[in-house]
Nucleic acid binder design. Structure first.
Lengths: 141, 141
DNA sequence: TTTAGTGCAAACCTTTTGCATGGCT
DNA sequence: AGCCATGCAAAAGGTTTGCACTAAA
């Protein structure tokens, strides 16, 4: 049931990207739909192999790259070193990272979005994309 | 004259980091003081060799890494793939990147800084660091 | 003199790619 | 059938590290 749902959703994403629907890609996209975190390629690979053991590293990277290039997936590099992925179908948000636990939270601020556009405009620019990350420590008071 | 100035400033930075003052490191730090852009390790290396041909790749990476770890240098990963450096002694600012020319501009917005702190506080957090990058295209109107 | 820094080259790690085979459409 | 996708393994690109030697303190 849940599997069917994700599977169909996933197939749609793949077709939208102009990619053929293969077992391996279905496994990868399902992992992305089920992910509640921001997995990197290695984690996606491991989880996808749980669904279909035949998924190779090359296919994981190629599929993630293709989906990201088509704009269906967002790439993040929170720490540096590893690229993390997130479905672009999710509503826009920025990230708050707990530097002690590594937990990543999401937030939205229309005020900040608005200020960003104003700043870009002052320089004569239009924003194509932006990245806002807050690295934080839990307040102990 | 200018050389002496930068040299002294550089020596101070190195001592502050608890590092020994060597010719190679002096060359590297001077490059950072003179840089008006956000060079990556490779660029720092090339420019440093211009001042002292004996600077090796290993020393460039080791020195940049040590200074960054000590907080005297900021690391950026604007595009993904390459780490770029910037002296931390410079006043705080965020970045606006022209995606067509690659040019990096700097800006400050007290309003945004303030909103960020407020958002973190809502989650019970204090901001340790943040990253705000606006990827933009020149407005053609 | 002691201890940290250096260059060189090899090792690392994540990501990409060439190639022959396999499988959507 | 045709063309795209796959797995494997090798390559690439940036960064790190082991080691014997050199130089700052």
């Amino acid at each position: 049931m849940a599997g069917d749902f994700y599977s169909s959703e996933g197939d749609a994403v793949l077709r939208e990207a102009g990619l053929r629907v293969t077992r391996q890609r279905q496994a990868i996209v399902r992992v992305l739909f089920e992910a509640e975190d921001h997995p990197d390629a290695e984690q996606v690979l491991v989880r996808a192999r749980d669904k279909d053991a035949s998924v190779s590293q090359a296919t994981a990277y190629r599929t993630l790259g293709a989906l990201a290039d088509k704009g269906l997936l967002h790439r993040h590099m929170f720490d540096g070193g590893v690229t993390r992925f997130e479905l672009a179908t999710r509503p826009h948000h920025d990230h708050l990272i707990d530097v002690e636990s590594g937990e990543v939270m999401e937030f939205v601020s229309d005020e900040i979005e608005c200020l960003q556009r104003r700043i870009a405009a002052e320089y004569g620019y239009d924003i194509v994309a932006h990245r806002l990350e807050l690295y934080c420590k839990k307040r102990r008071s």
